[in-house]
Design a binder for these strands. Structure first.
Lengths: 154, 154
DNA sequence: CGAGATGCGTGCCTCATGCACGCTTCTGGA
DNA sequence: TCCAGAAGCGTGCATGAGGCACGCATCTCG
C-alpha cells in the first residue's frame, strides 16, 4: 500500500503542479490575445470566445451561447455587437422562434477562426518537433482523455 | 512525407483542441474560486495567486512578486493588504534595502496554501483512479515535459 | 384565452485594473 | 563626497468589463 499510494499521490501532485504552471503561463486572456493579434479591431481576447464558440456550435441563440461559453447574456450581446459591426457574424431571426435571434458566423468569421486555430496548432507542432512522434501521439491521446474524463469534466 | 506530416499535423490539432477545451473548462479564476472556497473572506481567486506565488518564491518584494505573477504592482499591494489583514502574510522591512518591504507568508498562510494544493491533487487523483497506474505516470511525465519545453515555455 | 416563462437588448452600479504621482531610499559617476 | 537618476512602495484616479434587473416581445401550457 505504501508504495502504491505514495506513487499515486506523487502522480497527483506532479500533475497538479504541472497544471498549475501551465495555467499560470497560459491565461486564456493572454493566449487569446496572442492568437488574435493583428486580426482586426473587433477580434480580441474578449470577443474571441464568442467567435470560436459560435464556430463550434453553429448558428445559436445568444442565451444558449452564453451558457455554452459561461458568459453573461448581456456580455454576449455586447461582444456580438462588435463582431457584427466588423462583419464577422450576422444576426438572423430564428424561423422557429420569433423571440430568438440566431448568431451566424459569416465566411470572414470562419476565416478568422481557422486562422487562430491554425496559429495555435502550428505553435504546438513547432515545439513538438523535438519529440519522438510516438510520444507526441501518446501525449495527445492521454491529454484528450484527461480533458474528457478528468477532474474538470462536466 | 504525406503520412508523417499529416500525422504530426493531426497531433498538433488534437492537442490544440484538447488544450482549448481544458482552458475553457478550467479558467484560472474558476479553478481558484473552487480551490479557495470556505477558506475565509480574504482568500479568493484574486488573492490566491499572491498567496501561492509567495509560497513558491519565499519572502519577496512586491515588485518582484508582481513580475513573477504577471500582475501590476498596485494590485499586488492591494491584495497583499487583504491577506495581511487576515493574518496570512506579514510585511517585513528588507534588511538589505530600506526601500523594499518583504512579503512573508505566515504559518496560517502556509496552511491555506497546503490545503488548496492538497485539494487540487486529491481531485486529480480521484479521477485518475480509473486509469492504469502506468498510464497516469506516463501522462504526468509527458505533461511536465510539455509544460516545461512546450509552446508556452518562457 | 390568459398567466407565467423565455428571449433579447439596454441602462446602471460595482469593482478590478493600469497608470501616474509623491515620497523615500539606493547607486554610480563626477 | 555629493548629487542626479533609478527603483521601491503605497495611493488616487480614470477607464472599462461584468453582473443584475428592467421593459418589451413572443412562446407555451393549462
Amino acid at each position: 500500500m505504501a508504495t502504491n499510494d505514495a506513487g499515486l499521490n506523487d502522480t497527483g501532485h506532479e500533475i497538479a503542479d504541472a497544471l498549475g504552471l501551465l495555467l499560470r503561463r497560459t491565461t486564456r486572456a493572454r493566449l487569446y490575445h496572442q492568437l488574435t493579434e493583428g486580426l482586426g479591431e473587433a477580434v480580441d481576447e474578449l470577443t474571441y470566445p464568442v467567435l470560436s464558440g459560435l464556430a463550434r456550435t453553429g448558428p445559436i441563440s445568444a442565451a444558449d451561447l452564453a451558457r455554452e461559453a459561461g458568459l453573461d447574456r448581456s456580455n454576449v450581446t455586447r461582444r456580438a455587437d462588435r463582431l457584427e459591426q466588423a462583419g464577422l457574424l450576422r444576426r438572423e431571426p430564428d424561423p422557429a422562434d420569433r423571440r430568438a435571434t440566431l448568431l451566424v458566423l459569416t465566411e470572414q468569421g470562419h476565416r478568422i477562426v481557422r486562422t487562430t486555430r491554425q496559429r495555435l496548432a502550428t505553435r504546438i507542432e513547432a515545439s513538438l518537433d523535438a519529440w519522438p512522434a510516438e510520444e507526441a501521439r501518446t501525449f495527445a491521446r492521454l491529454l484528450q482523455r484527461f480533458v474528457e474524463e478528468g477532474p474538470f469534466a462536466p
